[in-house]
Amino acid sequence: MAAAEIPLWEVFIRSRNGLSHKHVGSLHAPDATLALQAARDLYTRRGEGLSIWVVPSHAITASDPADKGMMFEPTASKIYRHPTFYEVPEEVGHM
């Protein structure tokens, strides 16, 4: 039998409650259950996490770096979305 290609999974870990899951790396596993167990054995050996997500790598749709200009630059000029855009007299206090 030809060597089966064992699928690639992306691993996300919540290091403690109150924080969101963060991408930590990837691994190979034949299915989701083994992927979850492998993530536990590989990425939480030192108490790094309280919750794990595994996602098939092929399920991720990524933005194209070539679209960087179109995707991300138009926001740069929308400075009115930031609090520092607005002037409030100092005597009003923190707002």
Partner: peptide, 12 residues
């Protein structure tokens, strides 16, 4: 280990 990997893939 080949038969183990094959078995896991076959089950999947």
């Amino acid at each position: 280990g080949a038969w183990v990997r094959e078995a896991a893939c076959a089950h999947a």
